[in-house]
């Protein structure tokens, strides 16, 4: 699937009978009252989500990204039935989320990265027992799911530990398990790796891939971490100012955004900037260490080989572009294009 820039509203890729999540020109308008002077208040409307259309097929793993305030969490809140759309049509598993919130709740799992659904002072297992009763999960199914979660998320030693004593990473794993005990068909994760250490992040990502493979659970996650997308999602959607500005593969996003990766090389000793073929170029030199920027869409292998054959290398590493930078660049470009069009 090739990425593309959205210019008009319309059904996104994957529209069809198999669409599990379907948004058709969905809008969310907030009335904001601002204080002007001492008593006067000015009312104006903010379009948090502005005519967004897309579909997600069953079993897809989608990353949903964008800067803060772009409309990410508003979209997730509409998909989970927390908020009612101001316009457009929205269906999850054929259900209108805001009208049938409780019926939908049985079929979705939600993980809010910053808030826990677990009981702070009680052992982890108690929260799971509550889930079992609240979702009316049949005993056998519950035991089977719990055993699998414990195995995949390595929760065995944690079940009897009060949640308040868990580390952030352990708690997040506990929260993810809680969201999956009732076999939801779709799992929404809002910043599932925020604040986690590298090991925990890797474990969460691995787990998501595994669950998706085993149960074809549809996964929709918002994140600030590009690696989440890279390692988990086959598809990425970018939202800005309430509009969907990109929908496609991650590689395409790099292309559109013309983002750059950085090759960090440690030479044997201090040298003048190494010679590299354009468009790659040395952007920084510090002692024996040099930073070489190159297009993210190109492989690093050729560049590494080229440097290695001319210079003695001690060590090297590739740094991924930061997602904010990619998106920022993309936005700048869109803005530039728009202004040339209008003039």
């Amino acid at each position: 699937m090739r990425g593309r820039m959205h210019t008009t509203a319309g059904p996104g890729p994957g529209a069809g009978p198999e669409a599990f999540i379907a948004l058709d020109r969905v809008e969310k308008v907030f009335d904001v009252r601002r204080r002007k002077g001492l008593l006067r208040r000015e009312r104006h409307q903010v379009r948090a989500v502005d005519s967004i259309s897309f579909t997600v097929a069953r079993g897809e793993m989608v990353g949903y990204i964008g800067p803060n305030g772009a409309g990410k969490s508003t979209t997730i809140k509409m998909l989970t039935g927390i908020l009612t759309p101001s316009g457009g049509r929205l269906r999850v598993a054929g259900i209108d989320p805001s009208r049938e919130r409780t019926r939908l709740a049985h079929r979705i799992g939600v993980v809010f990265g910053q808030r826990t659904t677990l009981w702070w002072d009680l052992p982890l297992i108690d929260s799971y027992k509550l889930m079992r009763r609240m979702y009316r999960i049949p005993g056998a199914r519950y035991r089977e799911n719990l055993a699998r979660m414990v195995e995949l998320l390595d929760l065995g030693d944690l079940l009897e530990v009060p949640v308040r004593q868990l580390s952030l990473g352990q708690r997040m794993r506990g929260d993810i398990a809680a969201a999956l005990l009732h076999d939801p068909e779709v799992l929404y994760l809002d910043e599932p790796t925020i604040g986690l250490d590298v090991v925990s992040k890797t474990r969460v990502r691995e787990f998501l891939r595994q669950v998706n493979a085993e149960r074809s659970t549809t996964v929709l996650l918002t994140t600030h971490d590009l690696q989440d997308i890279e390692q988990v999602c086959s598809r990425v959607m970018v939202i800005d100012h309430g509009r969907l500005v990109y929908d496609g593969a991650l590689a395409g996003l790099h292309e559109v955004g013309e983002s750059e990766r950085t090759l960090v090389v440690d030479l044997e000793r201090e040298r003048p900037p190494v010679e590299v073929p354009a468009p790659a170029r040395v952007v920084r030199v510090e002692g024996a260490r040099q930073w070489v920027a190159f297009p993210a869409s190109e492989s690093a292998a050729g560049l590494v080989a080229r440097i290695a054959e001319r210079y003695p290398l001690v060590d090297l590493s590739v740094r991924e572009p930061d997602i904010e930078a990619v998106i920022a660049k993309m936005y700048a470009e869109r803005a530039g294009r728009a202004s040339t069009q209008s003039s």
């Binding site: 989970t80 919130r101 709740a105 979705i108």
Partner: peptide, 14 residues
Amino acid sequence: RDGSFDVLLVRPVS
């Protein structure tokens, strides 16, 4: 204010 009300809204009960 702290957003934990949303957690209550995604559960399948009143």
